[in-house]
Design a protein around this nucleic acid. Structure first.
Lengths: 314, 314
DNA sequence: TCCTTTAATGCTCATTGTGAGCATAAGTGA
DNA sequence: TCACTTATGCTCACAATGAGCATTAAAGGA
């Protein structure tokens, strides 16, 4: 199993997420157009420690919870890649935003700057209508009835058009559909000749290479995970009110939640415990402050079992 | 972002799974001690196509559904690794077992040959008792009360000792605990000096390098995924009875399921439809045969929502 | 032929979980 | 004091789930 491959580099890329002022944010370089990244080097003990060291070096930001996202290596992934091939290992980190001493160009930008169609907290965002219009035109442009119908089905499904429900988890799917439809700047950069077009809708800020796709992958992952693992707490200060907790979840999911039922869920699952402190600056009745019960990470409740297990004799 | 790293190889490793004769199986080389793998080469269009081509070349087995598992690269991962570093990208493939024209040394082995403590279909397997005994001795050996108590808590939690429930998904966690406790042959290979010991329990067949850990990762993933995505059908022939379907799920989960409720779940979720055919060789009343409704992959029901979404005005 | 065994299939019932929304409490500022 | 805002408690209908009883339909002897 000795290899004789072409030269190859491994790159580490980090999506570092935080929530502040009710906005989910990502840590970026170069004023918002790229994610922290760097080569995997021999000094690094592991991929994870490599990611930590690159992020800390480039942004001066310490990382908390971190998990592997995905490994990307399509041949035509990078523009202007020379003879070397690159494998990129993406990581997702969750932290608190921390502003002291940032490196130049480093900033925290709202996810929704890159994916404006993803924020449904006030209902469907205004950018959605022109996007759906452009997708419909894309479907119409298809050659052949079958392909036309298929394109229509796909975009309606992905964006929850008509009676279909909006599924907040399908971030990557929606991004890739827009990419395929030529509505994403990165796609036009890669396949010159397809011009923006006068009636092309705004589809968020672009990023370098495929960083925006990696961000979409991270959002997809986080929106899914938040439902079955207590990861929100990595994004919150040590104590918080139920409203702050709910707003963090809402920011990530891009959805409004039912307040009383959200509270009931927290109570049932015993994820938090009151600190005894009371927050008075609520704009209404004072709220209790809570803290995350770290013990639940050890108890590790197994989400919702979907298998009808047989218990006794059968 | 030009890199000047040490030479690096990327290796692709596949866990190819199937279910036959009520046993979950993995496709192996060298009579069961290694997984199909090979370097990522410049001819490969993508990581995925590289995996396909290596598996097909080494085993003569075509692959169906395939997904990325994890990327491994700890510095001390490989024994006797020279100056080059290796990144391994693991993939999980689901297929039907196919026996014509296998390459020499290629075989399908039950998962439970490598993880005998994981099959709880007939209740806790006999190997479990001596393993728990050895884990208790490992806990006792700890220096300091706190460490002793912590070890005890960890193994009891992972293996569902006492009142705690057995969680079939924690395959990797259990494997790593046994590894840490020095009860896994691979661990002793890596850290010589720790001898097997007379009363060391049987802990399954070993594999080359860390292939067994990759297999554990794959089982963990599959056991989790089977609950919220219709992936079992990739492991079944085009038509099947409810019992065959249930037994495939049971084989993977290593658990017995409640027959009537399993059936009800299938009916509710509309995952299958009757073919009209009747299977008579059941040993009892004849059973209807069903087929998977491929359309559900397009409908893509969003599993169980765990967020209390607000629908109307709030 | 009738009885026993083995599965397949249908159905019930208690319990728990979820969606929606009413009602009350306890602050703030006019 | 009133209007307004958020916090918190609680109810009610309905869906989902765990357990298990009951019936149906085949095979294989006695």
């Amino acid at each position: 199993m000795v290899s004789t491959t072409a030269p190859l580099d491994a790159e580490l890329i980090a999506v570092v997420a935080a929530v502040t002022a009710r906005m989910p944010r990502v840590l970026t370089l170069e004023t918002g157009i790229s994610l922290p990244s760097g080569p995997f080097e021999s000094v690094h003990r592991s991929l994870q420690s490599g990611v930590r060291s690159w992020v800390e070096r480039q942004t001066h930001h310490p990382l908390g919870h971190i998990e592997q996202l995905y490994t990307f290596a399509d041949r035509d992934r990078l523009e202007n890649s020379g003879p070397r091939r690159v494998i990129s290992v993406g990581y997702l980190a969750l932290t608190l935003e921390f502003r002291r001493d940032p490196a130049p160009g480093v900033g925290w930008w709202s996810w929704y700057r890159y994916f404006p169609w993803e924020d449904h907290r006030q209902g469907p965002p205004p950018v959605l209508a022109p996007i759906l219009g452009a997708l419909e035109r894309w479907a119409t442009r298809a050659s052949g009835t079958a392909e036309r119908r298929e394109r229509r089905r796909r975009y309606r499904h992905a964006f929850g058009v008509g009676g279909l429900a909006w599924n907040e988890e399908w971030v990557l799917q929606r991004y890739e559909l827009l990419y395929e439809a030529g509505l994403i700047a990165e796609a036009r950069r890669r396949h010159p000749g397809t011009e923006p077009g006068r009636d092309s809708p705004p589809t968020g800020e672009a990023m370098v290479q495929d960083h925006r796709r990696i961000l979409a992958t991270a959002i997809t992952r986080l929106r899914a995970k938040i439902k079955y693992r207590p990861v929100v707490f990595e994004l919150l200060p040590p104590t918080f009110t139920y409203l702050e907790l709910q707003q963090a979840v809402e920011a990530i999911a891009g959805l409004r939640l039912h307040k009383q039922n959200f509270r009931r869920l927290m109570v049932q699952q015993k994820l938090v415990e009151p600190t005894g402190a009371i927050e008075v600056q609520t704009g209404g009745r004072p709220a209790r402050r809570y803290r995350f019960r770290r013990e639940v990470l050890l108890e590790q409740a197994p989400g919702g079992a979907r298998l009808p297990q047989a218990k006794g004799r059968i």
